[in-house]
Design a protein around this nucleic acid. Structure first.
Length: 494
RNA sequence: GCCCCCUUAGCUCAACUGGCAGAGCAACUGACUCUUAAUCAGUGGGUUGCAGGUUCGAGUCCUGCAGGGGGCACCA
């Protein structure tokens, strides 16, 4: 009981007991009829004694500051909509409410009845007639002005960070609005939202290591999905024509400012479309998100300004290679020479693997964008339809903004024979540790029943929100990013 | 998995080339009916992330570990 923190808790527990002694419940109960603080603030202030004449209001929120002046008490109360000052005067409230004022701490949740008005200095204020205690905060809150500076503390106490870091709360709200907007936009275009399994016997649709879990009753290992693709295509076979899913996918890979092990993907499929259909849709969708922000079409992102004014640049993979590397990526000799000049190890590697390295090493970072890069080496795109006049090229595009891949779209491969062949080639090249990857026979069979030609699109929602909110790391747009559990804390709680 | 940086009171931060661990906020006691980073008087609060080592003496130097951050690798 000697540590400072325990003393804080003991002090607050004492106040909790005193609240109980007043015949009040320190954990509160249903509290109806309160209105958002922002809407209270927009009421008009009446002339006269503010304890009497103002409109009657009722609010609920968290105590952010307390200023005690003898027989009068000022509180700042915040709710989801804003902040307002509360004035409690000993003469204007009953004895029990005044006694309660001695038991209030920063962070407590409080309901307030009173008259809305303004103080002598003009501060909009609720002149309280009654307080309703709603919940005790037993732990001391962060410094009310400095907030939380320690990154780790903020990440491990995200609920506190969201209280004391308005920029974080604002970004979280933008993410919510943007995702809702994307749904509205797509629904309006006639796309329907579907849901497909997260637990899968075979995790396919992307090349990534999956998380493994186990189903007890069936006694089988299952994987968490790494993509939405293969089930959505089954739904194309099933007769759905314009579908999308916004869902969590899981990839068992490293964590970085651009990578969280679980993240949110939008995948969308349009029967009888192609990657051109998807390019038009992508531009319109993201543009309408930019417009929703209401900050114009030139957005400041970090040190640079990205101009979203359409039409966005469209440049082929081939053109990029000529421009940045002065070589045709289909020229095997040339590619190997250029790769060696850039210090890339080419020993035993296939040309297109080296091509891909070169793209990521040399070109990707320079794509300020927004720019559509289209027509990729086919061997890098096992789920993509080849160009009719050149089977080495796949009808795929990716959208790049600030060197970051934001969208990825194909003309979908619907030929089961070609699909099976590309799967087999892909599996043959996999290292031993990834031999868990298996041919998805069920998916191939679905294709054999006939999948319409289609355009498909994937957009990383987290990265899109990063770009649109100017966030430097993906953690800024994910409310609860993955952290390693604290060892000492978990041992203590055992 | 590798490299670099960070970790001091509940929170935000000080502490010179190794020399008595400090301040603001928060907390506690008291004064004050228009304050608003309220003010004034007073009080308490520390395993300096953890474990070792060097030293007369370690927050400071060395080694290991943990967590976090950044970078690399991985990520079609």
């Amino acid at each position: 009981m000697s540590s400072p923190l325990e003393k804080f808790e003991a002090d607050r527990a004492t106040k909790l007991k005193r609240i109980e002694a007043l015949g009040l419940d320190p954990w509160g109960s249903r509290f109806d009829g309160h209105q958002p603080i922002a809407s209270v603030r927009s009421l008009t202030v009446n002339e006269g004694d503010p304890f009497q004449v103002g409109p009657r209001v009722r609010v609920a929120g968290r105590i952010r500051t307390i200023r005690r002046m003898g027989r009068i008490l000022f509180l700042d109360l915040t709710d989801a909509s804003g902040k307002i000052q509360i004035l409690v005067g000993q003469k204007q409230v009953d004895d029990r409410t005044w006694a309660l004022c001695d038991c209030l701490d920063l962070g407590d949740l409080l309901g307030v009845d009173g008259h809305f008005g303004a103080t002598k200095t003009g501060e909009l204020t609720i002149f309280a007639t009654h307080l309703h205690f709603l919940a005790k905060s037993l732990l001391p809150h962060p410094d009310k002005w400095a907030g939380i500076a320690d990154t780790e503390f903020a990440l491990r106490h995200r609920y506190l960070d969201l209280i004391y870091n308005p920029a974080l709360r604002e970004r979280a709200l933008w993410r919510i609005r943007l995702v809702a907007h994307i749904r509205e936009h797509l629904n309006h275009l006639g796309y329907v939202e579907v849901e497909t399994p997260v637990l899968q016997a075979i995790a396919g649709g992307a090349a990534a290591r999956p998380f493994i879990t186990h189903h007890n009753a069936l006694d089988i290992d299952l994987y968490l999905r790494i993509a939405l693709e293969l089930h959505l295509k089954r739904l194309l076979v099933a007769g759905f024509e314009k579908i999308y899913e916004i869902g969590r996918v899981f990839r068992n890979e490293g964590i970085s400012p651009k990578h969280n092990p679980e993240f949110t993907m939008l995948e969308l499929y349009h029967a009888y479309g192609d990657y051109g259909t998807m390019m038009e849709l992508t531009e319109a969708l993201i543009l309408s998100c930019v417009d929703l922000l209401g900050r114009g079409r030139q957005l400041q992102l970090g040190d640079s300004v990205i101009d979203f004014t359409p039409p966005w640049k469209r440049v082929s993979y081939t053109e990029l290679f000529r421009h940045y590397l002065g070589v045709d990526w289909q020229d095997t000799q040339g590619v190997f020479q250029v790769a060696q000049r850039h210090g890339i190890d080419i020993a035993g590697k296939e040309r297109d693997v080296v091509v891909h390295y070169l793209f990521e090493e040399v070109i990707e970072d320079q794509l300020q964008g927004p720019v559509f890069v289209y027509d990729y080496p086919a061997s890098l795109c096992p789920l993509t339809k080849r160009k009719r006049d050149n089977p080495e090229i796949a009808e795929r595009f990716e959208l790049y903004i600030q060197g970051m891949e934001l969208a990825n779209a194909y003309t979908e491969l619907n030929d089961p024979v070609t699909q099976e062949a590309t799967f087999r080639r892909q599996l043959a090249g996999l290292p031993e540790e990834e031999s868990m990857a298996r041919m998805d026979e069920d998916f191939l069979q679905a294709l054999k029943y006939g999948m319409p030609p289609a355009g498909g699109l994937g957009i990383g929602i987290d990265r899109l929100v990063m770009v649109l909110t100017g966030s430097r790391t993906i953690r800024d747009v994910i409310l609860f990013p993955l952290l390693r559990p604290e060892k000492r804390a978990s041992e203590r709680s055992m």
